[in-house]
Amino acid sequence: MTKLIKHQFSFPHPVETVWEYLTNSDLLAAWLMKNDFKPVIGHEFQFRTGPVASLNFDGIFYCKVLEIIPFKHLSYSWNCGPGDGEIALESVVNWDLERTENGTTLHLEHTGFAKKENLEMYNGLLLGWVEKLQKIANLLNA
């Protein structure tokens, strides 16, 4: 299983322009979600979208600005849950901007889902699932 989500997009625009779209609340709302983001380390803010019933998600992302290096790097926590401010999933969103000959390459890394030991646990348990389930079935049928 993937431990993180990675996407990379290139734009024929200078990093200053792309940075503006990542850090200006109104511009963010135009492509991402309604928000009260401010480019200030430690600022707590929310993104709001529609709820997703199948994930037991109420549609609010609780975020906090973690790092800002102007025109280069931006990261914030990205937590969400079923409602009433309860947090079920913790993660971090990282943006990195790379100045290129033709403009900007934007890198997104969405990582840190849950706690590290949970993921290791998950990966460990996922290995050999079919084999394991087969063994259990054999045991129960014995």
């Binding site: 996407h7 779209y21 492509w31 991402l32 969405h110």
Partner: peptide, 13 residues
Amino acid sequence: FWLSKLQKLEDLL
């Protein structure tokens, strides 16, 4: 989610 949002950003730009 991110793929569709980034495509939206691309359209905007």
